[in-house]
Design a binder for these strands. Structure first.
Length: 622
RNA sequence: GUCCCCGUAGCUCAGUUGGAUAGAGCGCUGGUUUCCUAAACCGGAGGUCGCAGGUUCGAAUCCUGCCGGGGACGCCA
């Protein structure tokens, strides 16, 4: 157990004495200890049901006996303020000042590293996240994986793990052929300009544009086949004519696109250079948005990178006998012998001989194990691909890789955006999608208006920095404020509500703490009498800070950054309560002022740290 | 049809390794600025924790069945 997760000295002593009195191992007592339902009932409670069995007495009596026994313990004299049996529970109220004096120095000593640890030393975690497809718009769905993945990277890194963030770019497939073809047809100067300025958005335009006739054709055919609509003969004829006119054109485009992609696969130098250029430029433009989110990848090996690995892998798997032929395709059978319903196989090579993204995922997983020797391999991908990943992991198991159990699909729900009274899905059919940069800009613009209103005297460049941190933070926090599997609706107005469970609320609380320290000017006195911090509001805040290291670990274990967000809001609320009811700079005495300054400094440190782990900035004023 | 996720206050959600009287925010409503940022704080109203069984001293939490919402399910990614 690292220092950070060890109970604070006071709690440790309490646990030791409780364990001795109850004649139980300390770990068990530590596990039983919990906060009472209401803070005014005490600081820690121990349920006595389990103890009652061992003692052969009623739980209520055990609580009473234990209280009497502990009251006589000299080691607890300065620690415990009250021992109150309440039914089957024993409530312990500790000496608040002593508790603060036990907790705050640990935070001051750790500083910005508080909450972190070294338990991950020597272990590697691979996090596959963001991973946009270059034929599809980078929209709010990618924002989810990017935000969640980046937080997991930071959280695991804080715990001492070596973390490899991978942006597994969807940069391979027939789509490339379509994009090449559209590129060839585009004006040479215009296309350069567009690619340089818009990156992936331009590639998507190319793909969508050249696919428009095919899409139209598909829609016409659907209309013709729709049994629910009775078509007039002349209308039917019209449809048939339109289809006949489109069909050769679409077929020709498809043929040429496939041909171009085949050429790329076969190593055509010119196409390869173009592909590389598109890929690099896409990443460069994306990085502009990534920078605003504080995201940086260790690897950008996309699907194309794994192309050379596929043939050898397929050959090896065939030789091993894992890859078998089924209905013309090469598959890994996943069906369990005794299962009621036959699970579909994992298709590695299509019946036309082409590979699929399953093939590349398989190769990528093997590559990652060989290259990084991960302890965990995480895929931050939306929940709809759950079936794919369970298949992938089972397939890896069938291939005989024991590390298949270390792979995990970190799923998340869908995000929609609220516009007025309407709720728009991020992938509207035919409707325009909001590009990421635009989403961020709009939010920052809204926040800039609030800053202008609330803090007009702030210099302009400071305003801009605050608006950026708070605007982007509002979105980033909103996404992480609920458990990742729930579907979320983004609400422009609510996300910036400083009274709500929002990023701006936490950031504002942090700015308040900074403001006090700034007004104080001088450095924090190092040897404050922390035991003076005995008011309930003070003790509640310090106890919350004490919880932080555990919350970081829970968030890592559950892959749930939302746990940090929840903690940040709760702690902010407690601090604001303290702020409102107690003066710091004009405290009753200098000694009390110094102690409160230490508390404020600790709050500032830990809130900033928590925000940073979630990818939010922490402006010192706003 | 099979599998996965979800169902808690009018709305958005915490709480789920089983523990006491189920908590926040929004919205509604009443109050707090000679005081460190009122982008704040405090109070009030608001609940058959989807339904029904079961396990347990104890269930929002675990098990079974059902209802309702979303998603996936052999050659798209």
């Amino acid at each position: 157990m690292s220092i950070a997760t060890e109970p604070n000295p006071l709690l440790k002593a309490l646990i030791a004495r409780l364990a001795a009195a109850a004649k139980l191992p300390q770990e068990q007592v530590a596990g039983l200890l919990r906060p009472p339902p209401k803070p005014d009932m005490g600081d820690y409670a121990i349920p006595c049901h389990a103890l009652a069995k061992a003692r052969g007495a009623k739980p209520d009596q055990v609580a009473i006996d234990l209280a009497a026994e502990l009251a006589l313990d000299p080691a607890l004299k300065d620690i415990v303020a009250a021992l109150e049996p309440a039914g089957a529970f024993l409530n312990v109220r500790v000496n608040g000042g002593a508790l603060c004096a036990a907790i705050l120095p640990r935070i001051a000593a750790a500083g910005a590293a508080y909450g972190g640890g070294a338990e991950g030393a020597g272990q590697t975690v691979v996090v596959d996240y963001s991973s946009p497809n270059i034929a599809k718009p980078f929209h709010t769905g990618h924002l989810m994986t990017t935000v969640l993945g980046a937080s997991l990277v930071r959280i695991y890194r804080a715990l001492g793990y070596r973390v490899v963030g991978v942006n597994h770019l969807g940069d391979w497939g027939t789509q490339c052929g379509y994009q090449f073809l559209a590129w060839q047809r585009a004006d040479p100067q215009e296309r350069e300009k567009q690619l340089a300025a818009r990156g992936i958005d331009y590639l998507v335009d190319l793909y969508v544009g050249i696919n428009a006739p095919a899409k139209e054709l598909a829609e016409l055919k659907e209309k013709l086949l729709d049994k629910n609509v009775a078509l007039q003969p002349d209308c039917r004829k019209e449809l048939e004519t339109a289809i006949a006119a489109l069909e050769p054109q679409v077929a020709e485009t498809d043929r040429r696109a496939r041909e171009l992609f085949k050429q790329l696969e076969d190593g055509d130098a010119e196409l390869r250079a173009l592909w590389e250029r598109m890929r690099v430029r896409t990443l460069e433009v994306l990085q502009l948005s990534y920078d605003r989110l504080g995201v940086k990848f260790e690897s950008t090996d996309g699907e194309g990178f794994f192309e050379p690995f596929l043939k050898p892998m397929i050959a090896e798997l065939k030789q091993k006998g894992v890859l078998v032929q089924s209905e013309g395709a090469w598959v890994i059978e996943l069906a369990e012998p005794g299962a009621k319903k036959k699970a579909p196989p994992f298709i590695v090579v299509k019946s036309d001989g082409a590979t699929k993204y399953e093939t590349r995922d398989l190769a990528a997983a093997i590559y990652r194990k060989q290259t990084y020797d991960f302890a965990q391999n995480l895929y931050v991908v939306d929940v709809r691909q759950g079936f794919h990943f369970s298949g992938l992991f089972k397939a890896l198991e069938k291939c005989g890789y024991p590390w298949a159990k270390d792979c995990r699909h970190v799923s998340y729900g869908l995000m929609q955006i609220k516009e007025g009274d309407a709720t728009l899905p991020m992938t509207t059919r035919g409707g325009r999608m909001i590009p990421l940069s635009e989403l961020l800009d709009r939010m920052v613009g809204i926040v800039r208006g609030i800053v202008d209103e609330k803090n007009p005297t702030l210099p302009s460049e400071r305003k801009a920095a605050v608006a950026e941190a708070v605007g982007v933070g509002a979105i980033v926090f909103w996404i992480q404020a609920r458990r990742r599997n729930s579907n979320i609706v983004f609400d422009w107005k609510e996300a910036t509500n400083p009274d709500g469970d929002t990023g701006p609320y936490v950031q504002y609380t942090h700015a308040r703490a900074c403001s006090i320290l700034r007004k104080h000017g001088a450095s924090i006195p190092p040897n404050a009498q922390l035991a003076l911090l005995a008011a309930p509001a003070e003790v509640q805040v310090v106890k919350a800070l004490d919880e932080f290291p555990r919350v970081v670990r829970d968030a890592a274990r559950e892959y749930e950054p939302s746990m940090l967000a929840t903690w940040l809001v709760q702690t902010s609320r407690l601090f604001n309560d303290f702020y409102n009811s107690h003066q710091v700079l004009k405290a009753e005495s200098e000694a009390l002022r110094d102690a409160r300054l230490a508390l404020v400094d600790a709050v500032r440190t830990v809130l900033a740290r928590g925000l940073a782990l979630l990818g939010l900035g922490a402006p010192e004023e706003m």
